[in-house]
């Protein structure tokens, strides 16, 4: 595959960021950056222009839905995948109304699950 998918991980928990990087890199993704809150996420998206933003719903300064809406409003390119430790049913409406490509429970996170959303 000529083009490797570039990913930005946004989560306030370092352990998750580390686990997610190891998982995604093992599945062939390139993790270009990490952010631990909403504001830095927006800055890193602008700086790195990733293909995918793995965005935690629960951030210290904002929700993932807010950040997703801001990114969508700024016309950014990356596909947004929302993640949470909670189940998707907890956020059903909010996920559909957001600009996000989809939602993956953190426990189900894998490179394959991300690719399925990007297909």
């Amino acid at each position: 595959m000529a083009n490797v998918t570039r990913v930005l991980i946004v989560d306030d928990h370092p352990s998750f960021r580390a686990s997610a990087r190891a998982m995604l890199e093992a599945d062939g993704f390139e993790v270009v950056g990490e952010a631990d809150d909403g504001a830095s996420a927006l800055a890193e998206v602008a700086r790195l222009d990733p293909d995918v933003v793995l965005l935690d719903v629960h951030l210290p300064d904002a929700t993932g839905f807010d950040v997703s809406k801001r990114l969508g409003a700024s016309g950014a390119r990356p596909s947004i995948v929302l993640v949470s430790t909670r189940d998707a049913t907890d956020y059903d409406d909010l996920i559909r109304q957001s600009h996000a490509r989809g939602f993956i429970s953190k426990a189900d996170l894998s490179g394959e699950a991300v690719r399925e959303l990007l297909e």
Binding site: S15, F16, A18, S19, A20, M23, T85, K106, L109, S110
Partner: peptide, 11 residues
């Protein structure tokens, strides 16, 4: 979070 990380690590 730790259990999530553990789950990812096991996978």
């Amino acid at each position: 979070q730790r259990l999530v990380a553990l789950s990812i690590a096991l996978r």
